[in-house]
Computed example of a mutant assay.
Amino acid sequence: MLDTFPRAGQRECPDLPATHQLGEELGRALETGDVVILDGPLGAGKTTFTQGIARGMQVKGRVTSPTFIIAREHRSTVGGPALIHMDAYRLLDSGTDPLGELDALDLDTELDQAVVVAEWGAGLAEQLEQDYLLVRIDREAGSCADARVFAWSFNHRN
C-alpha cells in the first residue's frame, strides 16, 4: 500500500458519498498483492466502501455484493491490478477448506497479482497474506442515523 493512505486511522462518514470518498482514497493507494479485510455487521456499508475502492483503483464493472457468487473480479482500465471482491462468509461457512474453495473458483487473476477486498473476511483473508489492512465499520458509533465510523489498521502476521 502506498504511503498516500495512513496505515491506521479513524473517520466518520456521515453519508454514502463520504463513504465512497474514503474508499476511493484507499483505492488510489492500493497495490498489487494488497489484502483488505472489511469487518462490520450486515448493512454497515462494506459494499458501498468497496464501490469507492473500485473507483479509486479505476476498475471495470458494477460493484455489487458478492454474496451469491462468492467472488467477483474487476479488471483495471488503466493497467493496474485487478480487484477481487469476495464474500468470505460463505467460504468460512462451507465446512470445507476455505482457501481450497477460493482457489477452486478459477479466477482469471492469481490472488497475489490483484488487490483482494474481503467482506466478512476476518478469519480467512488473514491466511491469504501476512500483511493486510483491517477496516472495521461501526454504524452504532456514528453521530447520526446514516453515519458510519471507519477504523482501520495495517496488520502484520509473523
Score class of each variant (00 low, 15 high):
Ser94Gly: 14
Gly95Pro: 03
Thr47Lys: 11
Ser65Gly: 11
Ser65Arg: 11
Cys13Asn: 01
Ser65Leu: 04
Ile84Trp: 05
Met57Arg: 01
Thr77Met: 02
Gly45Asn: 14
Thr48Lys: 08
Leu102Asn: 11
Leu102Lys: 02
Ala29Trp: 09
Thr50Lys: 14
Ala44Phe: 01
Pro81Ala: 09
Ala44Arg: 12
Arg11Val: 05
Thr96Ile: 14
Glu25Thr: 03
Ala18Ser: 04
Glu101Ala: 11
Gly40His: 09
Arg28His: 11
Gln58Ser: 13
Leu16Asp: 09
Asp97Arg: 10
Leu91Asn: 07
Thr67Met: 12
Pro98Gly: 10
Gly27Met: 01
Glu101Ser: 15
Gly61Val: 07
Asp87Trp: 10
Leu92Gln: 12
Ala82Phe: 05
Glu25Tyr: 15
Tyr89Leu: 13
Gly79Arg: 08
Ile84Met: 08
Glu73Leu: 05
Pro98Arg: 08
Phe49Leu: 15
Leu102Gln: 11
Gly45Pro: 13
Gly95Glu: 02
Leu16Ser: 03
Arg72Asn: 10
Glu101Phe: 08
Asp87Phe: 07
Arg28Asp: 05
Arg75Met: 06
Glu73Trp: 02
Asp87Ala: 08
Ile70Arg: 06
Asp15Leu: 08
Gln51His: 04
Val35Gly: 03
Thr47Trp: 12
Leu102Pro: 08
Arg75Asn: 09
Ile69Glu: 12
Ala82Asn: 07
Pro66Ser: 05
Ser76Thr: 04
Gly61Cys: 07
Asp34Asn: 15
Ala18Glu: 00
Leu83Tyr: 01
Arg62Ile: 05
Met86Thr: 04
Phe68Lys: 00
Val59Phe: 02
Thr67Pro: 10
Arg90Asp: 00
Gly79Cys: 00
Asp106Val: 04
Ser65Ile: 01
Gln51Ala: 03
Asp106Arg: 15
Leu107Ser: 09
Leu30His: 01
His20Glu: 03
Thr48Gly: 14
Ser76Met: 05
Ala54Ile: 02
Gln51Tyr: 13
Ile53Ala: 12
Leu91Val: 08
Ala71Phe: 00
Ile37Tyr: 06
Ala82Met: 13
Leu30Cys: 13
Leu42Lys: 08
Phe49Ala: 12
Pro66Asn: 00
Leu92Ser: 13
Phe68Tyr: 15
Ser94Pro: 12
Lys60His: 12
Pro81Ile: 01
Phe49Gly: 10
Asp106Gln: 14
Leu102Arg: 03
Glu101Gly: 05
Thr67Leu: 14
Arg72Ala: 15
His20Asp: 09
His20Trp: 10
Glu73Cys: 04
Gly100Cys: 10
Pro66His: 07
Gly61Met: 09
Arg62Cys: 00
Arg90Gly: 04
Pro98Met: 03
Glu24Met: 08
Thr96Trp: 02
Gly61Thr: 06
Asp108Gly: 08
Thr19Gln: 12
Gly79Ala: 04
Val35Asn: 07
Val36Arg: 15
Arg62Leu: 03
Leu107Gln: 09
Arg62Phe: 04
Asp93Tyr: 14
Glu12Thr: 05
Leu83Gly: 02
Gly27His: 00
Ala71Cys: 02
Arg62Lys: 09
Arg90Lys: 12
Glu24His: 01
Lys46Pro: 06
His20Leu: 05
Leu107Gly: 07
Gly27Pro: 14
Leu107Arg: 09
Leu107Met: 15
Met86Lys: 05
Pro66Leu: 00
